[in-house]
Design a protein around this nucleic acid. Sequence first.
DNA 1: CTCCTGTTCAAACGACCGTTTGAACTATGC
DNA 2: GCATAGTTCAAACGGTCGTTTGAACAGGAG
Lengths: 221, 221
Amino acid sequence: MPEQAVAGGKENSVETPVESTRERLLNVAEQRFGEGGYEGTSLRAITVAAAANIAAVNYHFGSKEALLRAAVARAMGPVNIERRRRLDQLEAKGQPTPEELIRAFIEPGLDLVLRRGERGAVVARFIGRIAFDPSQRIRDLYAAESDPIEARYLAALQAALPHAAPESVAFGYVNMLGLLALHQSQALSRAPGVEDAEDPGKLAENLIAFLVAAFDRGLRA
Amino acid sequence: MPEQAVAGGKENSVETPVESTRERLLNVAEQRFGEGGYEGTSLRAITVAAAANIAAVNYHFGSKEALLRAAVARAMGPVNIERRRRLDQLEAKGQPTPEELIRAFIEPGLDLVLRRGERGAVVARFIGRIAFDPSQRIRDLYAAESDPIEARYLAALQAALPHAAPESVAFGYVNMLGLLALHQSQALSRAPGVEDAEDPGKLAENLIAFLVAAFDRGLRA
DNA sequence: CTCCTGTTCAAACGACCGTTTGAACTATGC
DNA sequence: GCATAGTTCAAACGGTCGTTTGAACAGGAG
């Protein structure tokens, strides 16, 4: 039973990088799960689009759910690292402001993932979709990949907002998680009279300003 | 081909109201679709729980999607009516404030539906879940049942916030729609250190205060 | 060359999906 | 009584689901 396929073998050369079957499956899974959700996407649809055999999923990952877990882990890895780095950096130089914390949380979710071409939008939609999937099981699966660092942000926000009750800060915090996921999944993009997706940077600024105002003045004492 | 079953026959008497097959199907569909989403819920699971035959779905509604549409229409009907009534009332007595508009929109979504016992929570979760279902098709189906009145609220908010750019108000507006749906679906309820569902009235007040602050000071000029 | 490990493949597994069928049942009107 | 329209039922339809199987293929090591 091979645990890992060709680990650090040949790095993508200058030539067109030949993706492994495993990588192609992860890429297509990201795209399809992000479009149709977990239940609404079949393994056959994924393997056909990835030019792979059905059995390849169970060979490389073990099951449909394990494929999803691997895709979530790959997508969230860089985001978690960046969030941790920025939080460490903020806390190293004293008490961060709410805006600094909100920015350090939102930007890795929108920038890292919405920037850099078409691929980033696919990853963002995938993450946003899975984070609030209808199935409790899938939501738990996602939470397991992002909870640790997120809990640190909640604590930091509570410390930065001493005038607000901790449970009120927690209320604002889950609102932030939800709004970020909805914007990542682009579920709010094609609403009446809105063109957010124009510039991910502008979207991030709008969302941050929206949240900062709500945190600063919209929470119970 | 009967278009409608026993229309205005015998209203629920004082005795235990005997629900028709059609009503039982709608009730169970509300519950199950709200728990597992549209794709994640089978007609067989619904009909078994409703003590009905599989064929009853196609007899009474025509298809799985038509069952969903009927359930959405039944659930959103009173909410839409109440929202329209309150908006009419506000506009009749002059220019409403942003808070009045937000309250008139949020409260029918949380109160009408989260109040009155266990049943209300089921309806709320159903609506919140379907409104942001992974499938575009399902989201469109929902939008068709609630768009008309919602569009009026957007226009009223833009008029009430003349200092903010119309597209910024629209941005805040979709954020309001998203946050309301997430709280309705209770997807934000079991987060770290939060116990919102304690009192739906308090949840409504918290959410309204959060949104009012964001609308008043978190939008671009 | 032979072995061996990793990978891909066509084909099939049983289970479940939404939908349809046609007969059986119910209750009212004549 | 009989006819009729509305409703329920068991059973089956073809199709798709996630998963499994066992053989075939690749290529480096001995």
